[in-house]
């Protein structure tokens, strides 16, 4: 980790809603994937995490949500230490998480999937269902359909909808555009922006770095489990080093 970036992180993150300090984490003992990552998000921000394959983008997101064990470092939400907390307890504390794969319950209907989203407080269902179906109108008409019969893009909508049912203050999205056609990818990015506009803080991990940097407020470029660059979406998208190393020809064109 570059000390400058870490100092900058400490200076700026005092009032952050969610914050990760100097995370070291991995799946197998002795093989860390994160080598001291920092991240913070202020209330209402849209944060992007990009980087090459194997940089630890998804691992960072999972570490925030307690799905990967954090060996050292700390994750806090509004100052409360939530490091390694169980996922369902994090949902109680208003964090939502949408995994990249297998992100719907296939044998449940769309409606039941959304019901599971507010499992901890079913009284929220009616209001939340209205709110979510205004973001994703297609879901309302097909509420009785089994989620297992949906296409990848439709599943992504259900998954994001479900994560929003508890009215979370932060939502973590793991590569929502992966495996989708370019048209559907655009659709997903528009939806993510829409969700953020409703006041929800969003942290998004993306393979499609160029597209991601267009919509985010701030971005983190990860390399080998460390923060390589941070900055606003626009500044990163225009940074020659970032373009050279991570955006490649796609961004130049």
């Amino acid at each position: 980790m570059t000390t400058d970036l870490h100092q900058e992180h400490i200076d700026n993150s005092a009032k952050a809603l969610i914050k990760a300090d100097n995370l070291i984490a991995g799946y197998f003992p002795g093989v860390p994937i994160l080598n001291g990552s920092d991240l913070y998000a202020n209330e209402g921000e849209l944060i992007g995490i990009i980087g090459p394959n194997g940089a630890g983008k998804s691992t960072l997101l999972k570490a925030l949500f307690g799905l990967v064990k954090v060996w050292s470092g700390e994750v806090t939400l509004r100052g409360e230490n939530i490091t390694n907390m169980r996922a369902d307890e994090l949902v109680t504390r208003s964090i939502g998480f949408v995994p990249q794969n297998n992100n719907v319950f296939p044998s449940l209907t769309i409606e039941e999937n959304l019901e599971m989203g507010c499992y901890q407080d079913p009284s929220k269902f009616v209001d939340s269902f209205e709110r979510v179906s205004s973001l994703f109108p297609a879901l309302k008409d097909r509420r009785k359909q089994k989620a297992g019969s949906l296409s990848g893009g439709e599943r992504q909508m259900v998954a994001m909808g479900r994560a929003l049912m508890m009215n979370p203050s932060v939502i973590l999205l793991d590569e929502p555009s992966a495996g989708l056609s370019p048209a559907l990818q655009d659709e997903v990015f528009i939806r993510v922006k829409d969700i953020n506009k409703t006041g929800v803080t969003v942290i998004i991990v993306e393979q499609n770095a160029a597209r991601c940097l267009q919509i985010v407020d701030r971005g983190y470029v990860l390399d080998q489990g460390q923060n390589a660059y941070t900055g606003t979406g626009r500044s990163l998208a225009n940074d020659p080093k970032v373009i050279e190393l991570y955006l490649g020809t796609l961004a130049k064109s």
Binding site: A87, N103, C118, Y119, Q120, R162
Partner: peptide, 22 residues
């Protein structure tokens, strides 16, 4: 509620947990 959660866990325990189900 628990019945539906049971089916959700059967479909995908990790996702069920991430959704807020104990």
């Amino acid at each position: 509620k628990i019945g539906k959660a049971t089916r959700a866990v059967r479909d995908n325990p990790d996702l069920a947990s991430a959704t807020g189900i104990n």
